[in-house]
């Protein structure tokens, strides 16, 4: 996968000159294996991954690069079509400024520099055809908790391109995702809301929680008034879902993201609605979030982009 520094990457390849703070390859993950102890993983902000793939005409399951806090420098051996979505970063291609949320033609040999996002955490770089790293259990995603999939990107790595594309893209500009400074996440109560005191349940809706620095692809760890339990006995481990708000004994909630453990032994008070998971995946340490009960009436008028559907998901 890697080649010597200084030389050009081979035709059809992309060389990572600098990965930035944390860059991984991600697709839509490995669904259908949780009963074997393998979590789904995949892009933390699946909406942004889908959008990036759509902008370059890739299949929905093509692999792209997920950057945390930007910072990537990459050289393209061959002309390519790329798009960046998610946390907005300043971009420079062959020394000239280019924009996010639109397809970009990259000339052969060009250098792409991704700056630091002014808001949000995760930026997605899709390249037409998708990345061709070896798939593990049907996915090219890095699962940071289980250690499955390719290692995080490092300087000098050459990435080959696959041919997971459909017709040339017709979309030439997508609306930029908004990242409010204090996002509101809609929450479905349960499965274990009855394990908490009435006070804890009302506190959930009335307090702003702060995102802490120990947040990662496993989960976003929040800081705020402790959520106390009514039932203090041990909960037998049970299956977890992304968006699940788990409350460990210290009462500080964790909202699970893509690399969450398959099962957990602390009660899950509620689950962030699927459409709002991209929002929490883009929250930075120090930022505050509000949680609100999910109401069906609050959904109309949203664009269809957030729920592209998972046609690629295999049946059990």
């Amino acid at each position: 996968m890697s080649g010597p520094h200084g030389t050009l990457p081979r035709a059809g390849q992309v060389r990572i000159i600098a990965p930035g703070p944390f860059a991984t390859v991600q697709d839509l993950g490995r669904p259908g294996l949780a009963h074997l102890g393998v979590t789904r993983s995949g892009a933390a902000d699946r909406h942004s991954l889908r959008l990036a793939n759509r902008l370059v005409g890739n299949l929905v399951g093509a692999a792209a690069i997920e950057l945390a806090y930007g910072g990537l420098v990459a050289r393209f051996a061959t002309a390519a079509l790329i798009a960046l979505t998610g946390a907005p970063c300043p971009l420079e291609l062959a020394g000239r400024g280019v924009g996010m949320y639109a397809p970009i033609d990259v000339p052969a040999g060009a250098l792409l520099r991704v700056g630091v996002p002014e808001r949000g955490v995760r930026t997605y770089l899709a390249i037409r055809g998708g990345l061709d790293v070896p798939a593990v259990l049907g996915s090219r995603s890095t699962d940071t908790l289980a250690g499955l999939g390719p290692p995080a990107l490092t300087a000098g790595v050459d990435l080959a391109l696959a041919r997971e594309m459909s017709a040339p893209p017709v979309v030439d500009l997508a609306p930029q995702a908004r990242y409010p400074s204090t996002p509101t996440l809609r929450v479905h109560l349960g499965p274990r809301d009855d394990w908490f005191t009435d006070e804890a349940r009302s506190r959930l809706w009335t307090t702003e929680y702060e995102v802490t620095a120990s947040s990662d692809r496993v989960g976003v760890r929040l800081l705020g008034p402790a959520l106390r339990r009514r039932i203090t006995s041990e909960l037998p481990s049970e299956g977890l879902v992304p968006g699940g708000i788990q409350v460990p004994p210290d009462g500080q909630p964790v909202i699970f993201l893509a690399d969450h453990p398959v099962t957990g032994g602390y009660p899950v008070l509620g689950v962030v609605t699927a459409r709002d998971i991209p929002l929490i995946a883009q929250c930075r340490p120090g930022q505050r979030v509000r949680l609100r009960p999910y109401r069906r009436a609050s959904t109309p008028g949203e664009d269809g982009l957030l729920e592209g559907g998972d046609a690629s998901v295999a049946a059990v």
Binding site: P236, T263, V316
Partner: peptide, 13 residues
């Protein structure tokens, strides 16, 4: 339409 079945000690997700 089931995509994931996760058994555990007292539950199936």
């Amino acid at each position: 339409g089931v995509v994931e079945l996760v058994p555990a000690a007292r539950t199936v997700l």
